[in-house]
């Protein structure tokens, strides 16, 4: 991929890019399909259930069947809804989810855009999804949806700040915003991975990322027991699928980002394991991150909305700033 990216644009390179973009799309869609299956299985095991096991062998086709069902469902738009915004909202929520995938490096050579400010791009683009969720909640003209949308925006904006500040520590250590160079700075064994050097930053990152993803224990925007379903309560059929898709693509992207920033990307934990291809290491770390999210969902109750805000501004943000300060101090003293 790196080779192709350095070539001047021609019909051949354009065709290669298009083909690899489609391949990536398929990989992500496949991931989403099986992430949902995996999530349901994992939670099933934790909860003494079997999880999906009826559709296809071991229930492997369950998600496929679910998506097909959503596809053929009637497309309902409420009478009082704001039609344009209602249709636009899922698209706005879901396009950035795919756009952020461009900058994620999976191995030394497998990546799509070698952007100098890759990390900044990720943070900026993923912020747009919030808008889609707010629009969805507003346009539905439903009280529960509005409350859900409002909560979601408040939450996502509050948590984006500690999230960004926590990764600046990594940027300081690596000396670059380029995700590839950040991974390169973590080579040579797991003690060089940033989750150790940036243990505080990593902790802040994990919590803020959970909130960004709207996942348990921060799944307030769709708090079923209070708001029924939150911002997407009026959505059905494929528009609903778009919101779900965006959510799971973000699980993919955030897990990949955590792997890249803190878990050493494609580097093996010790040098002597270098014969295993980098993609395998990446996939393993990535899978652990995804599992961690599902694991939390089966264990944690939900945070309350006002406590959520206090936590972001009074605990997480000072911690992130402290981490940044310490990192800068250590770097200055050591270097």
């Amino acid at each position: 991929m790196a080779h192709w990216l350095s070539q001047p644009l021609s019909w051949t390179t354009a065709a290669v890019f298009l083909a690899s973009a489609v391949a990536m799309l398929l990989v992500v869609l496949l991931f989403v399909t099986y992430a949902i299956y995996f999530e349901r299985k994992v939670i099933g095991w934790i909860q003494l259930r079997r999880g999906p096991n009826r559709v296809g062998p071991y229930g492997l086709l369950q998600s496929v069947a679910d998506v097909l069902k959503l596809l053929v469902k009637e497309d309902v738009i409420p009478d009082r809804a704001d039609r344009t915004l209602f249709i636009l909202a899922p698209v706005i929520a879901f396009v950035p989810a795919f756009a952020v995938l461009a900058v994620l490096p999976f191995t030394e050579t497998l990546h799509f855009a070698d952007l100098g400010v890759g990390l900044l791009y990720y943070v900026a683009v993923s912020g747009i999804t919030t808008l889609g969720i707010l629009l969805g909640g507003w346009a539905s003209n439903n009280k529960y949806a509005l409350l859900g949308g409002m909560r979601s925006v408040a939450q996502m904006i509050s948590y984006e700040i500690p999230l960004v500040i926590s990764v600046i520590g990594v940027v300081l250590l690596a000396g670059s915003l380029n995700l590839k160079e950040i991974v390169a700075a973590q080579s040579g064994g797991f003690w060089n991975w940033f989750f150790l050097k940036q243990i505080l930053g990593f902790a802040v990152f994990v919590v803020a990322a959970l909130a960004e993803l709207n996942r348990t224990p921060f799944d307030l925007p769709e708090a079923e027991s209070e708001l029924v379903a939150g911002y997407h309560v009026e959505y059905s059929g494929f528009r609903f699928a778009f919101f779900m898709l965006a959510e799971y693509v973000y699980v993919f992207a955030m897990s990949a980002l955590a792997t890249v920033l803190f878990l050493g990307g494609w580097h093996p934990p010790i040098e002597s394991l270098g014969f295993v291809p980098g993609l395998v290491w990446f996939a393993l770390k990535f899978a652990f991150c995804v599992f961690f999210l599902f694991w939390l969902r089966a264990t944690m109750p939900r945070v309350r909305v006002d406590q959520l805000m206090t936590f972001a501004w009074k605990v997480l943000l000072p911690l992130a700033l402290l981490n940044l300060f310490l990192t800068a101090l250590v770097k200055e003293l050591v270097a």
Binding site: P217, E224, R297, A298, T299, R302
Partner: peptide, 15 residues
Amino acid sequence: LLDLGAMSPFLYAME
């Protein structure tokens, strides 16, 4: 616990 957003205890208690 289900109301508070934790899913698993419900299934344990049902068992």
